[in-house]
Each structure stands twice: as C-alpha cells, then as structure tokens.
Design a binder for these strands. Structure first.
Length: 265
DNA sequence: AGATTCGGCGT
DNA sequence: ACGCCGAATCT
C-alpha cells in the first residue's frame, strides 16, 4: 500500500503528511489523512493538530485534507458579521445562535493553557483527547458587564428581574453582570449552581473565591419557586410555538409568491 | 501494547 | 458529504 509520507510545506520543517486509502467496508475508496510531527507523533484531525501546535502555528486557514493553506477559508467573525447585517437589513431570519460571548484562546479550537503534568520518572498521559477544564481568571465575569440582549432592530430588551435572594459577591459588581454570570454558569457547567458558599469569600474573594461558581452569594431555591418558574416556561414555550408557526406560514406565503413571479417573467 | 482500520455520530 | 474520533481488529 502507498505508505508514502511526504513533506508538508505549510507546516514547520520536519512535519510529514500521509494519505491512506480505505480498502474495504462501506467506506472503501475513501481516504484518511494523517500528519507526523518531527518526533514521529501521529495526528489524525485538525483539532488534535491545533491543540498540539497551540499558537505556534495559526491553522485557521489550514486545510487538513490537502495540507495547504487556503486563504479564502476564513469563515468566522468578520464574514459572519457582514452576512448577519446584510440579511438583517433585508429582513431575513433572525440569528438564533445562543453561543456565549466568552473569549476563547488563541487557537480556533478550545485549548488548555500550559499546564505541566508530566515530570521525569512520572507516568502521566499527556495530550488527552479532550482538553481538561481551563483555569479561569478570578473575576472573569466582569468582562460580561454591559452586555445587553437586543431584538433584530437593535432595540435593547428589558432585562430580567432577579429575585432578591440572588446577590452578587464582591465589590460593586452590578446586578446586570450578576444575571450574565448566572446565565453563563448554567450554560458552562452541568454541576449545580450554588453560589459562593464560603462566607470568607465576601471578606477576601482573592483567596476564598470558588472559581467554578458564579460571583453570587449562596442561595436556596424553594419548591414553590420551581413550580412558578415551570409555569412561566410553559407560557413562554406556547408563545414561542405561536411565533414559529406564524413565521413558517409567512415563509410559505413568501415562497409561493416568488414562484408565481418566476412564472410570470 | 501499539498500530491500523473502518464505522458512525454530528454537523 | 465529510470531519473527527471510538473502538474493533491486527501485529
């Protein structure tokens, strides 16, 4: 079989590329691409490669299959914004993306910061497939300050009212940030959100802060509150269902109008 | 145990 | 249709 490993000019010197054709099974004829580092370590996907190279090499426009840099390949951020504004101006569908505005690291993929876990004479498996939890800055949630949600016409939406039992921890964090902080915590972790349970966190957050919990004082939620909330969610779902239904109907009407115009010309 | 190979999930 | 990665299979 063609076990030819070729140089890959788009990568630093010493990196090799290999393409292996599948010879049996349902996917016979298709191929898999692998890269080998100068030390001989094998890489079988772009995320894996990106994790290893970190910010040494920007792989944003690197095409894993061909092994070449493809300049037009930049998809995210810039182009994306332009498209959004364009389609918005034309009255297109609203963007339903719910990704949190959390800063990622230098690479285009999730990537842990440097964390040395292997020492001479110590057997520790490095380069875990899934990057472990990243360390976080103590008051990272403050970066959420001032973020507001708005509707498609840039009209700022009324903010949610938080129950009084929810109070932020630490100096002068605004209520507005607290909402974002709690929402982020709910999105980013499957663990229960308890707030800062240590009373000491209030006195000296720099030392006692639990960084896996939002900057929020400890609180308890009653069954009563849960039932109330369930009711609200049910109502919200009903109005959403109505809105979506109206939207698909309008869409269908629009389409049939378009095809009618097409026939007329 | 490590390398190779194909399936199949998610997008 | 394809990238990515789990896991069965091979050496």
């Amino acid at each position: 079989m063609e076990k030819r490993r070729s140089d890959c000019p788009a990568l630093p010197p010493g990196w090799k590329k290999e393409e292996v054709i599948r010879k049996s099974g349902l996917s016979a004829g298709k191929s898999d691409v692998y890269y080998y580092s100068p030390t001989g370590k094998k890489f079988r996907s772009k995320p894996q490669l990106s994790r290893y190279l970190g910010n040494k090499v920007d792989l944003a426009c690197f095409d894993f299959r061909t092994g070449k840099m493809m300049p037009g390949k930049l998809q995210k951020s810039k182009q994306r914004l332009r498209h959004d504004q364009l389609s918005l101006a034309k009255g297109g569908k609203p963007d339903l993306n719910t990704t949190l505005p959390i800063r990622q690291t230098a690479s285009i993929f999730k990537q842990p910061v440097t964390k040395v876990t292997s020492h001479p004479g110590n057997k520790v498996k490095t380069d875990l497939q899934r990057a472990t939890e990243q360390p976080r800055q103590l008051f990272w949630e403050r970066r959420l300050k001032g973020l507001r949600s708005s509707d498609v016409s840039e009209e700022v939406l009324r903010t949610m009212d938080l129950p009084k039992v929810l109070q932020s921890v630490g100096l002068n964090s605004s209520d507005e940030t607290l909402l974002s902080a709690i929402a982020s915590a709910l999105h980013m972790s499957y663990a229960p959100i308890t707030g800062q349970t240590s009373a000491a966190a209030e006195k000296n957050p720099a030392i006692w802060l639990n960084t896996s919990q939002p900057l929020c004082k400890a609180f308890t939620v009653t069954d009563e509150q849960i039932r109330e909330q369930e009711l609200k969610v049910q109502q919200a779902r009903r109005s959403l269902e109505e809105a979506l239904m109206a939207n698909t109907l309008a869409q269908a009407a629009e389409n049939s109008k378009d095809t009618a115009e097409g026939k007329a010309t």
